[in-house]
Design a protein around this nucleic acid. Structure first.
Lengths: 72, 72
DNA sequence: CTGATATTATTGTTTTACGATAATTAATAT
DNA sequence: ATATTAATTATCGTAAAACAATAATATCAG
């Protein structure tokens, strides 16, 4: 039951491009992609914060404690 | 508008002691305390995962994107 | 006070987020 | 097909920081 990063979904829903989010957040597209793909082992709060700010959402929208979907 | 760690609240609500959570999660009480007090700049997903598992909650219950309270 | 719990403080190690960059792989035109 | 753009993946390097281990202080309950 890992932590799932749902950034992908959020970006798709809001039609936000990786590039523009990366630029706003201040990280490279490469690293944002890694985060999107769930290939990072953690995240810094300031990064999470900027993502939330830009996407106008909560950490809970981006991080989920589940292994499958549970698409509620 | 930083990320607020609401671990404190969660522990209080569930009457869970820092010690037992720390032991379950596999981190020291000292570090758990830092996390509780919001004195860490980030968190690793495996740590977050174990906390969520033990507290039977979601990351969204522990992390909030807000500066004040917004006590719903 | 005494004991249990929690916070804070140091010091040190190891992990890793992230930068910078480039190459590869989609997509989307033209 | 061939540019053009967007996204992913891959290396290498570094600075940051999570976390361990420990000890010292608080805090609170008896």
């Amino acid at each position: 039951m890992p932590i799932r990063v749902r950034l992908n979904v959020m970006l798709a829903e809001r039609n936000v491009k990786s590039k523009e989010l990366a630029e706003y957040v201040g990280i490279t597209e490469a690293n944002l992609s890694l985060l999107k793909q769930g290939k990072v082992k953690g995240v810094r709060f300031d990064t999470l914060e900027r993502i939330c700010t830009y996407l106008k959402c909560q950490p809970g929208d981006l991080l989920r404690h589940e292994d499958d979907d549970a698409s509620a």
